[in-house]
Structures are given as structure tokens and as C-alpha cells.
Amino acid sequence: MKTDELITMLSTNVEAVDRRRVVREIGATIAIGSLAAVGTMVLALGLRGDLPQTGPLIFLLAKLAFAVGIVVLASVYLMKLARPGGEGRVAITWAALPFVATMLLAVISLAFAPTSHWNRMIMGDQWLECLISIPIIAVVPFAAVIWVLRRMAPTDLIRTGALAGLVAGGLSAIGYALHCTDDSLPFVAFWYGGTIVLCTLAGATLGPRLLRW
């Protein structure tokens, strides 16, 4: 085919384009992903039962702040990386901020506790459930985020995949936090943080295969 024919075809009756489409579609997908994560948690695990009490409520809010912080930061970067050349315009390391902040708080809370409590503060009751649940709940949000990114044009597929994993892990943690009764900062830093990092690594590995265009 001659290039001229192609250009004629593409430019005939060209449709106007919604300039906010990238932000709108990614935003909507993340909203749907959060509903999917909360829905999976309610159906499979159930909401924690002790919520009217102040102590559990404060810890729930702390866990949500961590997870929501991750999702918000990662979404902002994702909207940049979804566009060609976006990787050159962002300092992606800021996405680690919620992890660093939680780690610091965890270290401080360990420093103020007797050493004999450390094991229990870190391992909690349900570390295995957390380790398994967060990646599993993340599957549907991850698929949704990958689906929307395939409609965009990322040019750094490893970083974009990693951010997709990070967003999915964060969304999953929002869901899991509503169930989890392990109320200690070291637990959140280690098990929530660790599993979300796993989701991020999985996203980075899968990105080049799933996002190619």
C-alpha cells in the first residue's frame, strides 16, 4: 500500500478526540478495581467484626491510609506512563514514599516495645492469610488495569507493568484491610508492604508481554 492511501484513509472524516480520555478511563478503572477488591474480600473473607470499637477503627484507618496512599501515588504515575515518553517525565521513586513512611513508623513502634513482644508484633495471627490473600485479591484489579493500559500507549513496559502491579496490590490491600485483625504497624509494614512489593515485581515481569503494542 502507498503511504498516501493510508493517510487519506486515516484523515477522511476524522473524529474529534476527548482530550481527558486517558485520565478518565484510568480513573474509572481504578474505581472499579477498588470495588472488585472490596467485593472479593466481603464474599471470601468477611468484614472484621470489631469495628465499632475505637482501637480497631484507628488501626483500620492507618492500614487504609497506607493502601490508599499507594494507590493514589501510583495512579498519578500510571497516568503519565500510559502516554508515550511518559517515563522521562516522572521520578517514579516517589511511589515508594508510603512504604518508607510505614517502615519508619514500624521501627519506631518496635523501639518502644519490649523485645519479647517483637515476634508477635511482626508475625501477628494471620501472616499466612495476608501473604496469600493480597496477591489473590489483586488479580482482578490487575487484569482491569492491564486492560485499560492496552488502550493507551506506554513506551516503558517494565515500569508501566510494575506500576500496574503496585496499583493492583494497593487496591487489594484496601480490601484486605477491612478484614484483617492484626493490629500492629510492624505487621502492616512487613506483610502488607512485602506482598504489595511482590505484586509490583509480578507486574514488572508481566508488563513487557501483556502491554506490547
Binding site: 486517558v22 502516554r83 517525565r89
Partner: peptide, 28 residues
């Protein structure tokens, strides 16, 4: 080049008007 023209067209919504245009083309 034709592959790129098709890609530019079907993904033209990913151009952010607040940014320069040619770096977007070059990245693709």
C-alpha cells in the same frame, strides 16, 4: 513508518496537549 502512522492515529488520545508534540511522536 506505516505501522507508526496507524499507531499514532489509533492512540492519538494519549497525546497530552500541555506537553510538546514532537517528543510524543519521537517516543512512539
Amino acid at each position: 513508518m506505516q505501522d507508526v502512522l496507524m499507531a499514532l492515529h489509533t492512540r492519538r488520545h494519549t497525546y497530552d496537549p500541555n506537553e510538546l508534540f514532537m517528543p510524543w511522536v519521537y517516543a512512539i
